[in-house]
Design a protein around this nucleic acid. Sequence first.
DNA 1: CTGTTAGCGCATTCAA
DNA 2: TTGAATGCGCTAACAG
Lengths: 326, 326
Amino acid sequence: MPTIKDVADRAGVSVGTASRVLSGSSSTSPDSRERVTAAAAELNYVANGPARSLRRARTDVLGLLVSDIRNPFFAELAHAAEREAMRRGYTILLANANEDEHQADEYLSIFAAQRVDGLLFSPQGPVSPKLASLVSSGFPMVLLNRTAPGLDIPLYATDNAQGVRLVLDWLRDRGHRDVAFVGGPAAMSTGAERQAAYLAGRADHGITENDAFLDVGNFLADGGEAAMIRILDRGVIPTAVFGVNGPTTMGMVRGLHHRLGSAAAAKIAVVSFDDLDWFEFATPPITALRHDAASIGRLGVQGLLNLIEGLPATSARVPLTLVDRS
Amino acid sequence: MPTIKDVADRAGVSVGTASRVLSGSSSTSPDSRERVTAAAAELNYVANGPARSLRRARTDVLGLLVSDIRNPFFAELAHAAEREAMRRGYTILLANANEDEHQADEYLSIFAAQRVDGLLFSPQGPVSPKLASLVSSGFPMVLLNRTAPGLDIPLYATDNAQGVRLVLDWLRDRGHRDVAFVGGPAAMSTGAERQAAYLAGRADHGITENDAFLDVGNFLADGGEAAMIRILDRGVIPTAVFGVNGPTTMGMVRGLHHRLGSAAAAKIAVVSFDDLDWFEFATPPITALRHDAASIGRLGVQGLLNLIEGLPATSARVPLTLVDRS
DNA sequence: CTGTTAGCGCATTCAA
DNA sequence: TTGAATGCGCTAACAG
């Protein structure tokens, strides 16, 4: 692999000049510029990133730690973040914590070792010591979609309360009183916020305040299914079910089918946080809150780059829309 | 940020000894080992990756370039690859080419600049000059799921011919003669292989050889929808439709709904390459080939690590299973 | 087993 | 505008 010295030799200039031309920083003569560019092209020169990073004490890489890349919400978010980062000259190092705090910590170490310039992070639950020390060291960092107690850094997230209000209105307008709700782990802010908003709004919207209709999952399909089955096994039959996120809702639908059979399941209205692209084909079609994952990803990158450049960054809530398929 | 020199000073040893302890290479006395470890912990020392990479001329990073991270197949594959890589001490740098050859080339440059130790790659179509030069330079590289003409490197992919045979048998057993098929861009090996196998097997399986039932999409939902609509607009009505991948099938279902209405669409059997997790809830439920994305990801990493270590790596085809929901 | 030292490839400072 | 020289943090070679 050719080095900058090879390029300089071939162009008949010093490495200093070659470096100046290749990184386009300070002024160079048109002549040497042309010769260096030509030499680099002929040699197929690609600058050595690690060497460059070592010298400049920055990598132009941003870390993005999502909790589950298989969740379409994060896939979409990651894709948008990546596009925005690339537009601004940064590369994104994407890691998948798989909803596992231990893995998240492991990736935090990897990011630290790689000396990423900043971090976009979707916390798994309580703040780990590693995360706390990273934050308190002033490392540039923003939160995506979830927060955690004691983390005073910019957050780019869905407007959960507004979304839940849309769902509550929808339920009331259709006369649903017996509504099953499956939330997420209390340790995750998304789950907590959505659950709190739902519980607070139930009475006002004519929904039975019977906690037999409530349970919690793990934000994954299997947890939603298990929770749904626990609810049904308490002997209650809802007229509508509401899942705290896409995978949870999918699990709930599975639970309904397995416990009640397809015919009975088809009579129960389903509404979900997160719109998955197959919801329109379900029986009955599933009404859902669609959140703008792409906007969150873009805003997150913009906020983080502000932080890196020493500018202020302010949190933002992105509104949801209800896709009514009833 | 503390450097190895800080650790050495605090432990009262030389940087050489500190390095040996921290990278666990050659033998060190229990005494210095303990003191260095303690000092590193107290200082919150994290080795500088770029410096380490520069010196060792390797990064312990593998590049993974997928064609669309929002496709659940690749999300699953990426996740499995990442797990396997981590198990072997490597980090994966994940990039999303978004089915765009230009973006793919851009990422190839980024990978080259970052000096990744090897590359897992899912080609977009024809081989770009940049890719060709990378391959001919002997850079460690394996192909995932797709190949391209003239690329003589290990391939880890679905056994397309075997999968299509399963579908053809299924169609014949149910007496379908008028089957609509939407393929993918001819430039992509997956599409080409599947389409070739389908066309070759039609006659033997009692399927009408009327090309009005054939069209091509772009592996995405919108392309599948457009292709389905073109087929219907030719005045033919299939009794079954077969999509070349998950998003294409989804688009086809959309096209059926929009053109024929839900009632008529519900009478048409649907079978798909790729099993998406909502297919069981569609009306009618969609029969699908399930491929083992996780195995492909794991095998890819294993093959690539073999290559990196100078061992031989051999291509492998991973069999599919048909999930019959009829 | 340990300390000293060279050098990985690059950007940047200082003189010229 | 340019060349020479320095050092980023680390590992490995060498000598002890």
